[in-house]
Design a protein around this nucleic acid. Structure first.
Length: 110
DNA sequence: GACTTGACAATCC
DNA sequence: AGGATTGCCAAGT
């Protein structure tokens, strides 16, 4: 049993599991992969995810404040906000309204 | 092989 | 209540 995949792969796997209309935080993802202190590293993986052509809903990942911290890294100007709004979320001032209400907690044993 | 950077988070003042 | 600092970990240079 060797599920020891790369840090990136684990992060991608979690992000891939994020249901539509839901969002999660970097810390939650890091925690689910067994690295609660590697929240920064999770964001680092996301940055690489945009560079590669994948189907990861990176726009559903925000910081623990529910703020679209990574919107600047998306193609275009407000791609991230637009995508979230398309999923039924409300965003004001780059911040998700009722963020806690749309927060999705990933599993710990993936 | 060591230093710097970075889409975070928690703590201190 | 709000701003500044520290901690942590992985990849890049």
């Amino acid at each position: 049993m060797s599920e020891e995949q790369d840090f990136f792969s684990r992060v991608y796997k979690i992000v891939e599991e994020i249901p539509k209309g839901k969002v999660t935080t970097y810390g939650a993802i890091a925690k689910s992969i067994g690295a609660p202190k590697s929240a920064r590293t999770v964001g680092y993986a996301m940055n690489a995810c945009v560079k590669m052509e994948n189907d990861l809903p990176a726009h559903r990942v925000v910081n623990r404040n529910g703020i679209l911290t990574g919107k600047h890294h998306f193609p275009g100007n407000n791609t991230m906000q637009r995508l979230l709004e398309e999923e039924g979320l409300k965003i004001i001032d780059d911040k998700i309204i009722n963020f806690k209400n749309h927060l999705w907690e990933p599993a710990v044993n993936q």
